[in-house]
Amino acid sequence: MKKIYFASPLFSDMERLYNEMVVAKIRETYPEFDLFVPQEQMGINDKNAYADAKTIAKYDTDALLNSQLVIAVLDGTSIDVGVATEIGVAYQAGIPIVGLYTDSRQQGATNQKKLDALQELAESQFSYINLYTVGLIKMNGIIVDNLEDLIQEIA
Rank of each mutant, 00 (worst) to 15 (best):
V83D: 04
V22G: 01
S124V: 10
Q39G: 00
V81K: 08
F36R: 01
Q152S: 14
E86I: 09
T85N: 12
L121I: 11
Y128C: 13
N66H: 10
R16Y: 00
A57P: 00
Q68E: 15
L150M: 06
M21W: 04
Y5T: 07
K114I: 11
T55I: 14
M1P: 11
A155V: 11
E123D: 12
K114A: 07
K25P: 00
V23P: 00
G94H: 05
N111L: 06
D80V: 10
Q92H: 12
V22F: 04
V23C: 02
M1R: 02
I44A: 04
I154N: 06
A49F: 05
V22C: 03
V73G: 04
A63I: 12
T110Y: 14
A57L: 09
G43Q: 10
Q107N: 10
I56G: 01
V81N: 03
Q41F: 13
F36G: 01
Q106D: 05
Y91T: 10
Y18F: 12
A117N: 12
R16L: 04
F126Y: 13
P96A: 04
K47R: 14
K2G: 10
Y59T: 15
Y101T: 05
R27C: 15
T77S: 09
K54D: 05
E153Q: 14
G141Q: 09
T29M: 06
A51I: 07
L65H: 00
E123S: 13
S78W: 03
L64K: 02
V144P: 14
L131W: 13
E40H: 05
R27F: 03
Q112L: 15
V22M: 01
T133Y: 14
G135M: 08
Y50K: 07
D46E: 08
L10E: 02
I95D: 04
N66T: 13
L100A: 05
L150Y: 02
L150I: 00
Q152M: 11
Q125F: 15
K114W: 14
A72E: 03
I26F: 00
L35Y: 03
N140A: 08
L17G: 01
L69H: 03
T29C: 07
I151N: 00
V23G: 03
A51E: 01
Y18P: 00
S124Y: 11
L118G: 12
D46P: 08
D13M: 10
F126D: 00
V134Q: 08
K114Y: 15
A93D: 05
N130Y: 11
L136M: 13
K25T: 01
D116Q: 10
Q41H: 07
I87W: 10
Y59P: 02
V73Q: 01
E148N: 07
I71F: 02
V22A: 00
P38D: 03
Q68S: 15
V98F: 03
D145P: 14
I137A: 04
A117E: 07
E28C: 06
Q106Y: 15
T133Q: 04
V144D: 07
G141F: 02
Q107P: 12
L65G: 05
Q106C: 09
T77G: 10
L118I: 09
T85M: 13
T61L: 12
Q106S: 08
Y5I: 12
E15T: 06
S78H: 05
L69M: 11
